[in-house]
Simulated scan of single mutants.
Amino acid sequence: MTVTTQDIQRRLVALGYDLGKSGADGVFGRMTIAAIKKFQADKKLDIQYPGTVGPKTIAALGLDPAQGEALLPPWIAEALRKKGLHERLNNAALRAYLKSDGKALGDPAKLPWCGDFVETVIALALPKEPMIENPYWARNWLKFGVSVSIDRPVMGAIGVVERDTGGHVFFVIGHDKTYWHALGGNQSDSVSIVKILKSRTLGLRFPKTFAIPAKPLPLTAFSGTISTNEA
C-alpha cells in the first residue's frame, strides 16, 4: 500500500482542515496545498518547501513516512485529470481548461498547444512558481525552473525535445533505455502518454518551488505508442 493524495486529504479533514466542497477528491489542488501549509505551520514543521509532502509531513499526519515518496507531484496529478482530452473531439472542454489559468494561446485545433498545456498545469498546481516568458514556445521551457540531469531523471521533470525547427514539451512520468514515457498535450492531438526518443532530448527541467525527489526514476516498461512528430 502507498500513501495517496486522498489518504492525506482524509486525514486533514479529520483534523479539521478545510478542503472546500470537493473534500477528499484525490486532486492535489490549491485548497489541499493551502491546508497542508497551514497544518505544517500549526505543527511547526521545518519544511523547505511548504505545501509539499514528504516524510516529515506524512509522519506528522500519522501516516506511514516510508511511503512519502510514492506520492505523485501535484502537477502530474493535475495533468492526469485531463488525459484523453482531444483538440477536436473535446475542443470546448480543452479550450476552457487551457484558459482556466487566465490566459491561453488560442484554439488548440489550429495552434501547437503542448506549451500551453504544460503552462496551464504548472500555473494551477504551483501558483507561486515563476513562469518563463512565452511558455507557448516549447524550447523556452529550457529556461524554466532548475536543470535535471538526463542521466538521473525524476518523476515530474519537464522534458524538452527537438521537433523539426521547433520543439515539444511534456512531463516525464517514466522511462526505459530508449524512450521517455511522456505525459503531455498535442500528442496524437490529445492529452496522452506516449513514448518519445531520448535521442531527441534538449534538456530536462524541474520547478523551483517543489523539492526534487531524492531518488531517480527506475527503468520501467511501457507499451504505448511511439511518437515521432507531435503536431
Rank of each mutant, 00 (worst) to 15 (best):
T2I: 14
V3M: 07
Q6E: 11
Q6H: 04
Q9H: 02
V13C: 10
G16H: 02
Y17Q: 02
L19R: 02
L19F: 04
G20K: 04
G20Q: 03
G20Y: 07
A24S: 11
A24C: 05
D25A: 06
D25G: 04
G26A: 02
R30I: 07
M31Q: 13
M31W: 03
I33P: 00
I33Q: 08
I36F: 03
K37A: 02
Q40P: 06
A41Y: 05
D42V: 05
I47S: 01
T52N: 08
T52S: 15
T52K: 04
T52A: 12
K56C: 04
I58L: 06
I58N: 05
A66C: 08
A66W: 09
Q67A: 13
E69C: 10
P73N: 06
P73H: 08
P74V: 00
W75I: 09
I76K: 08
A77H: 06
A77L: 13
A77P: 01
E78A: 11
K82M: 14
K82C: 09
G84Y: 07
R88H: 11
R88Q: 14
N90V: 12
N90H: 15
A92Q: 06
A93V: 03
Y97D: 05
Y97E: 04
S100H: 07
D101T: 02
D101L: 01
D101G: 05
G102I: 10
G102K: 10
G102C: 09
A104L: 07
P108K: 04
A109H: 11
K110F: 06
K110S: 11
P112H: 09
C114H: 02
G115C: 12
I122N: 12
P130V: 12
M131R: 14
I132M: 12
E133A: 14
N134W: 05
Y136L: 03
Y136D: 04
R139S: 10
R139W: 02
W141G: 13
F144C: 04
V146R: 15
I150R: 09
R152E: 13
M155G: 04
M155S: 05
G156L: 11
G156M: 14
I158P: 13
I158M: 09
I158R: 09
V160T: 15
V161N: 01
E162S: 15
R163K: 14
D164P: 00
G166P: 04
G166N: 01
F170L: 06
T178P: 01
Y179T: 00
W180E: 01
W180G: 00
H181V: 13
N186D: 10
N186V: 13
Q187G: 07
Q187S: 07
S188T: 13
S190W: 01
S192C: 11
I193H: 01
I193F: 01
S199H: 02
L202D: 01
L202Y: 00
G203P: 03
L204V: 07
L204F: 09
R205E: 05
R205I: 08
P207W: 05
F210A: 14
A214V: 12
K215G: 02
P216C: 01
P216S: 03
P216W: 00
P218G: 07
F222R: 07
G224D: 14
T228I: 13
E230C: 14
